[in-house]
Simulated scan of single mutants.
Amino acid sequence: MLKEWNQRRAARRVKPGDGRPLKPFRWWQLVGRVLFYLRLTGLDGRRTVYAVDVRRWGDKETGELRADLYLDGRHHARSKLPARFPVEGGRVEVRMSAFGLKRCHYVTTEGTEHQLVPDRDSAEGRRAYLDRAHPALSRVIGSLSVVMLLVSLAILVPQLVEKALPPTLGTFNSPFDLPVWLNAAVVLGSATAATERALRLRYHWLLDGAAG
């Protein structure tokens, strides 16, 4: 029942587009813009191209975090995040974490899921190219990101518990007492690792959620 309620709520967030053309991705938008594509072929053989455009820091006028859906290069719909756009043969689901997208998938009416393809010039597209061109290096980077997040959890969580635990529940002494600069370095490392995983749309509620 909760799932159905969330689906109806997401459907109400979808608003019609204004038909404006999709702007190409520019190099200076690497940090602030996400652009993914979905290419579909209908039963009649007609090919359509959907594009999902997200600005990480929200609309520059309203600050609203939203996704814009384009159909064959024209603005087709918009929605606050998380978004759930009805498209031919299914829907496109878009969700964001503190470090980037954690979901941008096409879900068919049968329930099959396919991740959309990032624009080749975007940060996600460049990370995907690295994965194709240098798979071994890509796996090493991915593994280092997981290790960094695990280390951050092990170091930072006990310190947070020590400070946040109410006196009525007793006391807890963290095994780590690091200088401020080293704690800052750990936080920066965890943020970098979570960002790298977001470029691949990898998200785990504990690892990446704690980093945020």
Rank of each mutant, 00 (worst) to 15 (best):
L2D: 11
Q7D: 11
L144N: 09
F99H: 12
K60T: 04
L69N: 02
N183Y: 07
P21A: 09
T41C: 11
F99T: 01
H75L: 12
A211M: 08
P86V: 03
D18I: 02
V140A: 09
L2N: 13
V31A: 12
G170H: 10
G189V: 05
R74G: 04
K163I: 09
E93P: 03
G42P: 00
S152C: 13
V92T: 04
E88K: 02
H75P: 04
R66E: 07
R200Q: 15
A77S: 14
V117T: 13
M96Y: 02
R84W: 14
L144Q: 11
K3Q: 11
E110R: 10
L165I: 08
L144S: 10
S152D: 14
Q115F: 09
K60M: 06
R56L: 15
E93F: 10
F172I: 01
V94W: 06
L156C: 10
V151D: 06
A67K: 01
R103I: 06
L201G: 02
A193Y: 07
R39T: 14
S143T: 12
A198F: 12
G142L: 05
H105E: 07
T112E: 15
T168Y: 10
T192H: 10
Q29R: 00
G142R: 05
I155C: 15
R139H: 12
A123Q: 03
P86T: 00
P86I: 02
Y70A: 00
D68P: 02
V92P: 00
T109L: 14
N6V: 07
R55C: 02
T41V: 15
W27K: 01
P175A: 11
D68H: 12
W57T: 01
R20E: 13
Y106P: 04
R78D: 01
L130M: 13
R13I: 00
R74M: 05
K3Y: 09
A11T: 03
R66Y: 03
M96V: 05
T108P: 04
P135H: 07
L207N: 04
K163C: 05
H75S: 10
L169D: 06
K60A: 09
A128N: 09
R55F: 10
L207C: 14
T109Q: 12
R84E: 13
G42E: 07
L43H: 08
G89L: 03
R103H: 08
L101D: 01
G100T: 01
L40A: 09
V146T: 12
